[in-house]
Write a protein that binds this DNA or RNA. Structure first.
Lengths: 241, 241
DNA sequence: TGTACATCAGTGAACGCGCGTTCACTGATGTAC
DNA sequence: TGTACATCAGTGAACGCGCGTTCACTGATGTAC
């Protein structure tokens, strides 16, 4: 911020780093996660393979950056879905769920990158931006549970969960986001996540179609049942939605 | 069966074909699905890479055979779990679910092979033994729903499903297994499958641990809720199980 | 404004790697007479 | 039982491929005086 006119060099550098990721994602979308190769990217940019090393130290570094970007795009879609819904927890949980599936169907290879095997031989760094994004996604969903807790507590308050059921770092993070959080609320959020993830990942990996013509119908029933799990009564409007 | 003494050649051939698959699975378990390479297998067998082509026409053929084997092993585990449970639908659905997770945790790479990206550049054949195994798995779960249908019908009989919601071949197959099957029962089976799959695949791909110390606890709660979805009342014994 | 120097994105060639696949061949195993 | 032939699993060498990564280099862009 001290530097009023950012270097032309720096700007070009940032643009090129971005273009590398964009092309990598394009290749991934076209030919699967295995198709992310430094040489192929360089070829498409009209560059030499070695030039990539000005931007990323290693192929794995690029993939890590890719995962972070993709995860952030997913989390953003989820957060926007919640923000766009009314304060009603029923609306929120259904919006979150719909956004999860919609994003996955629109970005199947990205979904595989984040929730499947990232790429052959890729070793994920233990923590980093991807872990941050995962935390954000989890926090968003926990937020929905928190807003439904007045109803959900009746069903889940006695689940026998304590903070010891989670990793300490995770507890610190999520409790700082929600002051008077019940330990069982996190478990509930995880279960919600699992339900969304199950049908969506079966669909993305081709295990529902073509046996089932319209996975959306199954998914919607699960969404409705989610609200039951939260102890919420489902408005008639949502049932036909 | 006409040939009383099967060729020694044929026997050795079958053994070698089996050994190739065994070694492939071993490599997969050790280094991930990407580590299945004809050359590496041949090396371990003390053979030349070209020799593999006496047994499999192509690398993809081997992978297809692998997937079929693995899927059969999973389906067998599931079928045995159901067979080992009492006739009580509650026991059956919980046995099925537990077997699903247990198998996945014991065979994580195999799980990825079947439900994730099989291998880089692998193209699955449209139908074949893998599809058969998938049908068997689906049939087994549908069988559980059928046995619970007297209770489940009350909740799901009016779901608005018809046979047109499924592919014709699939309908023929599953109806031949269960004479008076309700279309909604299949949808219910798929939803059960989705719930099992969600938490299990999140766990296998490392998205639950270490944030959640004991995914089994979450999973068990889902199992209990599965019985609710089937309209069954949950015995007290199962709750503490 | 002009000159001398530093920076650093990108080059081009090379390294070594493992891969799937093909092919003419050898030699042991099985078969037919 | 012995001989002539057919089968066919496995050899070994080669093909062409794309990959990640390194390195001495060039030449345009930026900086300091």
């Amino acid at each position: 911020m001290v530097d009023a006119k950012p270097n032309r060099r720096e700007r070009l550098r940032a643009e090129a780093a971005q273009e590398i990721k964009t092309i990598a994602l394009k290749h991934m979308a076209e030919n699967g996660t295995a198709a992310v190769s430094l040489r192929a990217i360089a070829r498409e940019m009209g560059m030499t393979a070695g030039a990539i090393y000005s931007y990323y130290d290693t192929r794995d570094d690029l993939i890590t950056a890719l995962i972070a970007d993709v995860y952030n795009s997913l989390v953003q879609a989820l957060e926007e879905a919640i923000a766009g819904a009314s304060g009603d927890p029923v609306e929120q949980v259904m919006a979150y769920g719909r956004a999860y599936r919609t994003w996955a169907l629109a970005n199947p290879q990205e979904f595989r990158l984040v929730y499947g095997d990232p790429a052959p031989d890729y070793q994920a760094p233990p923590c980093g931006p991807a872990a941050d994004a995962e935390h954000r996604a989890c926090t968003a969903l926990t937020g929905v549970v928190v807003s439904a807790w007045p109803w959900a507590e009746r069903l889940h308050g006695e689940g026998g969960y304590t903070w010891d059921d989670y990793s300490p770092e995770f507890v610190v993070m999520v409790r700082s986001a929600f002051a008077d959080l019940h330990p069982a609320a996190i478990a509930l959020a995880m279960r919600l996540w699992g339900r969304l993830h199950g049908l969506v990942s079966l669909e993305i990996y081709g295990h529902l179609r073509p046996q089932v013509q319209d996975p959306a119908k199954l998914f919607h029933e699960e969404l409705v049942d989610l609200t039951r799990l939260l102890g919420l009564s489902v408005p008639v409007a949502a049932l036909s939605d």
